[in-house]
Design a protein around this nucleic acid. Sequence first.
RNA 1: GGGCGCGUAGCUCAGCGGGAGAGCACCUCGUUGACAUCGAGGGGGUCACAGGUUCGAUCCCUGUCGCGCCCA
Length: 980
Amino acid sequence: MLTCQVDLPRCGGFLARSIAQRLHFPMIEKNYQPADIETRMARLWEEAGAFKAGRPERRDARPFTVVIPPPNVTGSLHMGHALNNTLQDILCRFERMRGRDVLWQPGTDHAGIATQMVVERQLMERQEPGRRDMGRAKFLERVWQWKAESGGVIVNQLKRLGASCDWSRERFTMDEGLSRAVAKVFVELHREGLIYKDKRLVNWDPKLLTAISDLEVQQIEVKGSLWYLRYPIEGKSFNPDDPATFIVVATTRPETMLGDTAVAVNPDDERYADLVGKHVILPLVGRKIPIVADEYSDPEKGSGAVKVTPAHDFNDFEVGRRHNLPQMSVLDQEGCLALVGNEDYLRGLPEGASQLAEELHGIDRFAARKLIVARLEDFGFLERIEPNTHMVPHGDRSGVVIEPYLTDQWYVDAHTMAQPAIAAVRSGATTFVPKNWEKTYFEWMENIQPWCISRQLWWGHQIPAWYGPDGKVFVAETEEEAVGNALGYYVEQEVITPEQGDEMARDPARREGFITRDEDVLDTWFSSALWPFSTLGWPDDETDVKRHYPTDVLVTGFDIIFFWVARMMMMGMHFMKDVPFPTVYIHALVRDEKGAKMSKSKGNVIDPLHLIDDYGADALRFTLAAMAAQGRDIKLAPQRVEGYRNFATKLWNACRFAEMNGCALPADFDATQATQTLNRWIAHETVRATREVTEAIEAYRFNDAAASIYRFVWNVYCDWYLELAKPVLMGEEGAAKSETRAMVAWARDEILKLLHPFMPFISEELWAVTARRDGLLVLTEWPRKAGLTSDEAVLMATTSPNDGLLPPVLLALDTGEFSDPAAEAEIGWVVDLVTAIRSVRAEMNVTPATLTPLVLAGASDETRARAQRWNDVIRRMARLGDISFADRPPEGAVQLLVRGEVAALPLKGVIDLAAEKTRLDKELAKADADIKRVDAKLGNEKFVANAPEEIVEEEKEKREAAVARKTKILEALERLKNAA
RNA sequence: GGGCGCGUAGCUCAGCGGGAGAGCACCUCGUUGACAUCGAGGGGGUCACAGGUUCGAUCCCUGUCGCGCCCA
């Protein structure tokens, strides 16, 4: 314990420093240097294993579990990560200090497409053989190699941000355990019929050559055209000038006309009523196709007739199904016309059609569009072209136009799996914060489509399905099992002999070409969906699943509610029979200061690492927390970060001040037992701040929590408490001084605790250098709300959320015995008096060097006593000469109203009497306006009758105060007149 | 077309049934014993618009206008 017998400031820095050194803790450096602190504190936490879950002393504590939204292994920290992880870290550090056994589960996502693209690009840049030339095995080796070398960048960046994850438990979606979870889930869902293979239209990416899910498609508005084509009616001699010989169809995709298998008109469209059931001859191709009636065709749009191309359009696919139309692909994987050798296309075509096929074969879809339109025009089939702005699907990764494409893919029956997930949110088992996101969730879940989970990529979890020579599929968790099943089956079917079966089972080379594995991999989000339990060891070891599932809260952005949250809900409900988290906190998107989404192409990306370099991780974190109000996007201006860096500096200097004044906390100090009014006041304010910060974090109101601690530190502790304490700290030794020193240190320590979740680095550093400590701040107990007994605190830390032992009273306690209205009244008076004097001095242009006297006129005994007690402080802070008392204010003095009494500054000769009259007139007008407004209310019978009693009481008090004020102002004006 | 959200001080944003707030910017003053990364003071808003509910509306409801996002 440090009790300084020496008056440190008078001895100067040197002595203070040497005393501190003898007491074995370092002095606070003169300047706040975030970079230096961050490195050292990070190391300290690491060495102490501070973030480890399952610390022995917390074995019996209630766990608090959060799984990180795994960043892409290719990623680097952007503002969204910074926000997301800051908020999670605030919660984790907060609960850790509250005694919980915190597991913040970190890890990264293999990010199938993104990672494969990165490595492919690298191969290209190095002019090495491409993926296909290299072969699957070798390519995958390269990806793993890349992952080992540069895959961990983002993890280190998260550490720089201060993320208190249990890094010893870092997982990767493709590590062995998680891969086993993926296989098991696939096999079980397949067995239950919830995963199946189907041939239907998918969103095909012609650049990446893979199917993608609906969610990976972005609809982008494109200025295109609407082409009006004339399709000749069968049996009539086509004449471009005779509308009776053709039907006009409007299309945005003329190049797919080669694959048309019908023309559709609306059944209610009278214009075409007599054509339904007849046929048209497809221009250029010569194929005879029917005219069908279908609701899909909108009479208002285009010509009212549409061509139907079931293999290249999602709507047409449905129309085709309803009318039993053939599905005819005319494009290949890369979006080029595929006509030569295309049996579906060539079947039944007239002589000469193959010539067209040869001419157009292999041409890219967009070039083909031009060619086909030109050719249609040549023959009079093109009626006109209209400009047309419409939505065109684009791949979110490749950026190219997506092609609806007919292929075999694996699907999850999302509709069935969504039902329990919907019910869980309906019942409140999981709630969204803010609540309005539930609507978005329901909207999507209730209209969910089959989820295409297969990808024609190499990097990812290869689908655990094997095919026999007849295409029969064998799904199993391991190759051994699948092959066993397959060989058994074919032996039984007498396709092979038992001896052949044995050989194939023993030697993979022998079964090559007989049994082959599905080449495709799973959608990255398939493994992400298992994250809340796969990272806990499922299915191999359920110990941690039992302790940590369901997790406590998920913190994420709204942009991945569909991608991730919804799918975790489905998988969690299915495999764990419970929600993955009772609360989903959805935070905003971080935008640039103009509100634009940050993107590389716009060049408006603010790099969080640069902000950390410039202002420190603490300042960035505090900024993000302070701006994370629910329900609004964050427009980030770097200036805000600078402001919060200044806040850190302010705190730094306040701690230096405390140190220079020998402020230290005696071991047995009890803040509630303070005797000095000022000290009782700051204890009261500290408890209030504690309550505000605690309740705000509990309610996920990060901005309120940040605002509370900011205001308390700067506008209460620094601006008033330390200033008011100065005369005591500079004065004679004694009980008052000792208590004040202790209280300065106590409040400082409470501040460091409250601030820690937001600014972990500087708070930990200051914790270390301001006193000898038993342990790190990160593991120090959070200040309890007043009235919370230690038994209750223990209960809170050890009770599990579902056992109903947590009494509601713990969640809403007031300041209880810490409240001290008397202290508030006295310090409030000092604050008001000083503020009023400062204000009028500035207004009257009194230079700071001028020490004016103060006369308290007609002061009550209480005011006289207060003025004497606070004489030094008031004089120093308000730049006064001396303070005296009188029955009436002296003539020609400026008269201020402070809590109903007159404080006069005799400034005769210093001030401009006319200006003072103007000032008083203004105040008089204000008082009159107040009285008038209140009178209007109180004069309203309905108000008095209907308004709550306390509101009416309040209004009456306001009126009395305003009237009293007015009286004093009138008196002041009167005296002013006499002085003139 | 459907859904969600937002229009509050010059800027970025809190507040959300009972007298308009913060930070930054701006203006004035300041080498006061932690801090100029600071201190003191100040100016600045018919809370988008129009109706309605209410004793009372920036706040609740309806509509209009403007902006953003998501889904078709």
